[in-house]
Amino acid sequence: MDKPQPRPRDPAGVLLAFPAELRPFLPARHRGEEPVRVGVDGTSSLGHVVEALGVPLTEVGALRAEGLGVGPGYRPRPGDHVEVRPVRRPQRPRPQPPRFVLDVHLGALARQLRLLGVDTAYRNDLDDAALVTQANAERRVLLTRDRGLLRRRSLWLGAYVRGADPDGQLADVLDRFEPPLAPWTRCTVCNAAPLTEVRKSDVAPLLAPGTRRTHDSFTRCPGCGRVYWRGAHSRRLERIVATARRRTAEPGAGAVVAREG
Rank of each mutant, 00 (worst) to 15 (best):
D165V: 13
V141Y: 04
L150P: 14
D146I: 04
D128A: 15
L115Q: 02
R123I: 03
L143N: 09
L142V: 07
L109A: 05
T144E: 12
A164I: 03
N136F: 12
W156K: 03
A121P: 01
R123G: 05
P166C: 09
G168H: 11
L170S: 03
D167F: 02
R114Q: 06
L170Q: 06
R123V: 06
R147H: 05
P166E: 08
V118T: 09
R145C: 01
D127M: 05
R152F: 04
G168T: 11
A159T: 06
L155K: 08
V141K: 10
D165R: 14
R153N: 02
L155D: 00
L109R: 07
N136T: 13
R153I: 04
D167R: 11
A129V: 15
A129N: 12
Y160I: 12
A164T: 04
R139Y: 00
A129T: 14
S154F: 07
A121I: 00
W156V: 04
N124I: 00
A164M: 01
L155T: 03
W156Q: 11
V118A: 03
L143F: 13
S154E: 15
A129D: 15
Y160M: 09
R151Y: 07
A110Y: 12
A159F: 01
A164S: 05
Q112G: 07
R151K: 12
Y122A: 10
Q134I: 15
E138A: 15
L157Y: 01
G158E: 04
R162T: 11
P166Y: 14
A129F: 08
W156D: 07
R139V: 10
N124M: 04
L170C: 02
V161I: 07
A159S: 14
R114F: 05
Q134G: 09
Q112S: 07
V132I: 14
L157N: 06
V132D: 00
S154K: 14
A110I: 01
L157S: 13
L116E: 07
S154G: 10
D125E: 14
T133W: 03
Q112L: 08
G148T: 12
V132C: 01
T144G: 14
R145P: 08
L109S: 02
T120C: 07
G163N: 10
Y122I: 08
L143Q: 08
N136P: 13
Q134T: 11
R147T: 13
D119E: 15
V118Q: 09
R140Q: 13
A130W: 13
R140G: 15
A159L: 06
D128I: 02
V161H: 03
L113K: 06
L109F: 02
T133H: 10
L126A: 03
G168C: 11
R162Y: 11
V132E: 01
R111K: 14
V132G: 02
